[in-house]
Design a protein around this nucleic acid. Sequence first.
DNA 1: TCGGGCATGTAATACGTTACATGATTCA
DNA 2: TGAATCATGTAACGTATTACATGCCCGA
Lengths: 191, 191
Amino acid sequence: MTATTSTLGFAILAVLARADSTGYEIAGRMRHPIGRFWTAGHSQIHADLQRLRAAGLVEYVTAAGPGPQEKKVYSVTPEGLGALRDWVTEPPRPQPERDELVLKTYAAWLADPARLIEMFRTALRHHEERLAEYESTWAAVEEAPPAFGTSGFGNMAALRCGLTYERHRAEWCRWMIDQLLRAQSDGEHPA
Amino acid sequence: MTATTSTLGFAILAVLARADSTGYEIAGRMRHPIGRFWTAGHSQIHADLQRLRAAGLVEYVTAAGPGPQEKKVYSVTPEGLGALRDWVTEPPRPQPERDELVLKTYAAWLADPARLIEMFRTALRHHEERLAEYESTWAAVEEAPPAFGTSGFGNMAALRCGLTYERHRAEWCRWMIDQLLRAQSDGEHPA
DNA sequence: TCGGGCATGTAATACGTTACATGATTCA
DNA sequence: TGAATCATGTAACGTATTACATGCCCGA
């Protein structure tokens, strides 16, 4: 059986596999913590939930809600859980990588070094902040490593990726700043 | 003056700033080497070239082409070069990161460790291959570092990012495999 | 009483991919 | 002769973002 659900559908199933939620709550988790590796706005999520339900992968129970519509608490069906499990181990098809900062870097030879240094210093600061955040979370996780088979394992594994990613990114920014400082001083008193 | 051009537009300008090209040639460079950090199909590129031309950022000269239409060799106008230069040092607005492998990882606690190990070994192999490729290119670049102000600087800087990225990614995959092997052996003879 | 959080949805627009359509030249 | 490369473009579809629209409850 081939997966006909979009990647967003699996992201939603991954959230619901941890806890039954409303569409609104799923949107919240799509900002944090999942926002680091997948994002979606609430309107997209509501639409996808309807498709998932039509496919029998999720179901909901209603409750009185604020506003005119009723509140719907979604959960994964056994078929949904099976589809999610199958999808997890399928090798991801190569996605188009899009990184605006690297694209700018590719054209950086045309621009002003001083401004570039400023830009990379800002980027470096952001990466260092995130790294510090991840490292403190990591310290807490390392003390009591969650067992495989619990959702904590997924948290830890994704966090580990974020950790090494921010380190790589900060390292690269520092290298760029160093290169640009050299270029600047070469420009000031050329041979 | 605010930039009204899409990011793809600037990617096209960045290609043309290095060499005048046809739309077809731009598409080729969007696969390689730019494909590592930005991608677009030829139909999108042709459409964007028309918009860039309407905005006065590029122009073309025609030549006899194969097929029914004439061949158009595009170049950047002075205004286009100015827009590109301005854009380069503007801090990139935060983009939604989307990484299917990390999303799968977040749900990995539900799946079979043996299959996961297989998936991460495949990913690791890909990253190691790319890393080896980047490292050999890097060795050549390091011998004669291109000066800032030449397009070679842009190549080197983007390559440097790819290099540290692949290292981070390979490191993370190895960590994942290690964790999963432990989980597997714990599962075989539990306490 | 006014803004923010909770909670649902639709509609318009923009962006991106895939498929369709044409046709010369070159190489196996 | 048949496929690959060069070269242009349009059309259809699918995905994603932004704006619109409603309305309760709670705290400042």
